[in-house]
Design a protein around this nucleic acid. Structure first.
Lengths: 211, 211
DNA sequence: TAGATTGTTAATCGATTAACAATC
DNA sequence: TAGATTGTTAATCGATTAACAATC
């Protein structure tokens, strides 16, 4: 287990670097910090600093090997594991997520989609059968689910999170517009459409970045 | 036009404060910075500092009036305008977004949903007819669309963004897993499932926040 | 008045970036 | 060697927080 702590700002940029490398033409064997900075819209010093946390593979005068860098980034992010993902909520958002092709491409495995609605349970979605939320704990254990996704209305979010926590899930992605409480040791990331819209609205309202 | 510049970190917390106040029981007329901090998981000094940027309505020894604070937050975020929103991409994600009830609740207006797929154009989604992307510029002008949402595959994202920019849209929310380039004056926020998953994976991999 | 809580300052902390020696 | 670019230091910038006077 590595003990260097990577700053959280850097961590959230690592997936962006990784994606940028994926868009690279295969003819390009190396990339400089300056080029990468251009692509992702950052300062080249920051790129070098971020990559240095990975024990980067840069070569002075040349740049970073694209292939090596990709390996280093995947390694640092822990994308070598194939973590299982369970989605709770088989509504529109759950459907969109379960049909999102990217999961497998990034090494995640869609393990289950669950709901409480008897009318939905047993239906097929994204190649999986919708299962009953009451079975969450069993499913998490049997299929080794590591990541839980909450795609329910806000009113159910805390309950669903509690169930995930009880089942032993330590990483939760919350799409419900609600702030949920979790014990320490559990990481929750929140993605909220109305928050994003409201931040955009602030900029509209204040004419920011205008000119 | 107010000229005080609110730090971007504060701006992104304002919607969170606003939502927390919405969850408040109507019996509670005032709230202290300490209470609000508890709910959103922040330091009370930070809450006071954030609210002070709004020309906050706090009363020493008492706290903030819930109703006034809500008004101040909505005002600061520019939620008094009823901005029009257009979604490009009538796939699963576009469907989820167009059915997302929160738009109107927060004062946004779903103005249009567009796609390039002839099989989808003319179909109904979230109460709107799916329209042809080639008509985007006309639609933006006629319906005064202020915010564009990109819900297409990554490969189309830059093209769609270009169309939004050409049509005069200055605020874009990008759900496609692609980094897009825009001229200065245009604000893009990116929401990317695989980035979020990868950040969670980092924490899993490094056993962070464990204990 | 005594207790509570704001608004704000000053201290701290962390993140970004300019600069440059190291070196391919 | 000359040119390019890294890795890292030190300076800067910005954001968080402790502390406390102001005051309801």
């Amino acid at each position: 287990m590595k003990t260097i702590t990577i700053p959280s700002a850097t961590i959230s940029r690592l997936p962006v670097y990784l994606r940028s490398l994926g868009d690279m033409p295969p003819t390009q064997a190396t990339i400089s910090s300056e080029q990468l900075a251009q692509i992702v819209g950052l300062n080249s010093a920051q790129v070098r600093k971020d990559l240095s946390y990975l024990g980067a593979a840069g070569v002075r005068g040349v740049g970073y090997g694209v292939a090596e860098l990709r390996v280093d980034l995947r390694e640092a992010l822990g994308l070598t594991h194939g973590y299982g993902v369970a989605i709770v909520g088989a509504g529109n958002l759950g459907a969109a997520l379960s049909n999102y092709g990217g999961f497998e491409a990034w090494g995640f495995e869609m393990s289950a989609i669950l709901d409480t609605d008897a009318a939905k349970i047993g239906e097929s979605l994204g190649g999986l059968l919708i299962e009953d939320l009451v079975d969450l704990e069993r499913i998490v254990k049997q299929r080794d689910v590591a990541i839980g996704i909450v795609a329910t209305p806000a009113s159910s979010a805390q309950d669903v999170v509690n169930r995930f926590v009880k089942a032993g899930v330590r990483s939760i992605l919350n799409f419900a517009p609600a702030i949920v409480q979790v014990p320490s040791g559990v990481v929750v990331r929140r993605v909220d459409l109305s928050t994003e819209l409201q931040i955009l609205t602030y900029h509209l309202h204040h004419n920011e970045a205008a000119g």
